[in-house]
Design a protein around this nucleic acid. Structure first.
Lengths: 120, 120
DNA sequence: ATTATATTTGCATGAATGCGCAAACGCGCA
DNA sequence: TGCGCGTTTGCGCATTCATGCAAATATAAT
């Protein structure tokens, strides 16, 4: 069992925001669940700014929590397809899944404004 | 104390996604926290599809949970600026704050892709 | 094979959260 | 003023979640 296909294999590739709620374009609650923690969000900011993959240890350096906690946070984001993970020797490098993340955000925004434009 | 300014007065008007994490454009964790519940997300879908304000009772009709629970969910979304609330007599009508929501989503997406465009 | 380093996982714990029910509150109306 | 309807809030309960620590796993080097 490698690093990317782990639990629910929720890793979707790009333009498929998993619709819940019947309304297409609205992501699954688990998508937001992955982003709703302050620590996880700061990890996201770090990886976005890094612009390149970072190991678990590197990410953990910037945080006061245990490495295992950071590892778990990264796994949560990876399981939702928001992060990508690849082993390199004994390290695992995490990076932002830009395509999926941006597509999910735009898809949600489009669904909202397409269904309900106030006036224009 | 009226319906909109309630707890933390987190109700921001439109284009100001409250940056956490130092990286501007990334919303506060509480923004995602408000969207990370399945019921709340279905409420969002309902209000988006409705295209017009809905009372608490009207929203609650479509859900198996108690009215008080729906009221709390609506309050959570309102406190984050995602929903708008206005009293009309004894009823309170909730509607989607399109400007804020879409702006927050696009702002996040822009921050991500601006900081880290894979290739283009 | 043994050791060392990096990452993940099991377990316990305290805090947060969703929920139902009942009571309180707000508002219109007789 | 009192009543009824719609909404919110207080409280208790069960579940989820973030965290730390220790143990397990994975991989490389000796």
């Amino acid at each position: 069992m490698n690093a990317q296909t782990r639990k629910k294999t929720a890793g979707m590739t790009s333009g498929d925001s998993p619709s819940c709620c019947g309304l297409p374009g609205i992501p699954d609650a688990r998508f937001f669940r992955a982003l709703c923690d302050p620590t996880r969000l700061r990890i996201m900011a770090l990886l976005v700014e890094a612009r390149q993959p970072r190991t678990v240890s590197e990410v953990a350096e910037g945080f006061p929590v245990d490495v295992s906690v950071v590892s778990r946070h990264l796994a949560v984001l990876r399981d939702q397809g928001i992060l990508l993970a690849e082993r390199q020797g004994k390290e695992v490098r995490y990076s932002v899944n830009y395509e999926f993340l941006v597509s999910a955000l735009h898809g949600f925004a489009r669904a909202v404004e397409a269904c309900c434009p106030p006036e224009e």
